[in-house]
């Protein structure tokens, strides 16, 4: 196995007495498409915050492309090729959609010149996401669904090696969710980047990813092939059981 592109080693996050993330280990390699699922409050987003440098873990280390970035500022993670989206789109509302993508290209994107040039200009990225016709509109004026797409576009502008997607399909219709899942696969295939995807819409995620990690009460309780993971007793009890119908999820 080659060295992991992104490696979380024993990452814990505690807020006062509450342990949000508890000793999670996760290695992600180039080209992998990994899903992270877990019930509400399982610590998925908090874990993402540590992976992107937004939150410093209480314990544990984060290694990106061989460099230990634990405790470094988010822009250092960006310079190492970690790009992310936020659950609630955090686009620059006063800037146009085009300027949002340009911003990412101008900073994180410029720091990272590498071989993949499939998405290295504003028009290509917006076109790929179907946002070409709203390029000159202020991002704050876009519909929530389009802001979510723009979040992905901004992350692509950062020219990532690891793309972290936090519930990019939340609030979308079934058709839109399927389209987003296809889009994520295409990004992975065309850029060859690693993608880590958190999603509440478990069905689509399970069908799209090749590997899934399950977080429960801050700890990782399963990690592997989605079909195998869906059958694990601990997972069914902790997560799928809670949703009631495991057959629907595994379908």
């Amino acid at each position: 196995m080659p060295e992991a592109l992104l490696s979380a080693r024993g990452v814990s996050v505690r807020f006062g007495g509450l342990t949000a993330v508890n000793g999670v280990n996760l290695d992600v390699h180039t080209g992998e498409l990994v899903g992270i699922i877990g019930p509400n409050g399982a610590g998925k987003t908090t874990f993402f915050h540590t992976l992107s440098g937004v939150l410093r873990p209480t314990e544990g280390r984060l290694i990106v492309a061989g460099d230990d970035l634990t405790g470094r500022a988010p822009h250092v993670y960006a310079a190492h090729g970690v790009a992310r989206t936020f659950q609630t789109p955090r686009v620059f509302r006063d800037m146009t959609a085009a300027d949002n993508v340009r911003f990412a290209l101008e900073f994180a994107g410029r720091l990272r010149k590498h071989g993949h040039d499939a998405f290295d200009d504003v028009a290509t990225i917006l076109g790929f996401l179907g946002l070409a016709e709203v390029a000159m509109l202020p991002a704050g004026a876009l519909t929530p669904a389009r802001q979510r797409l723009l979040e992905i576009g901004v992350a692509l502008g950062a020219r990532p090696r690891v793309l972290l997607l936090d519930e990019v399909a939340a609030g979308l219709t079934h058709t839109e969710i399927d389209a987003t899942a296809q889009l994520i696969r295409r990004v992975r295939d065309e850029l060859g980047v690693a993608v880590i995807w958190i999603e509440h819409a478990v069905r689509v995620l399970m069908n799209t990813v090749e590997r899934v990690a399950v977080l429960h009460q801050g700890a990782k309780i399963a990690d592997g092939d989605p079909r195998a993971v869906a059958k694990e007793a601990a997972v069914i009890e902790a997560y799928l059981g809670e949703e009631g119908d495991s057959a629907r999820v595994a379908a």
């Binding site: 992107s52 960006a78 994180a108």
Partner: peptide
């Protein structure tokens, strides 16, 4: 606009 977002974008 959003300082933390700007940071995550490098």
């Amino acid at each position: 606009g959003d300082e933390e977002r700007a940071q995550t974008l490098g």
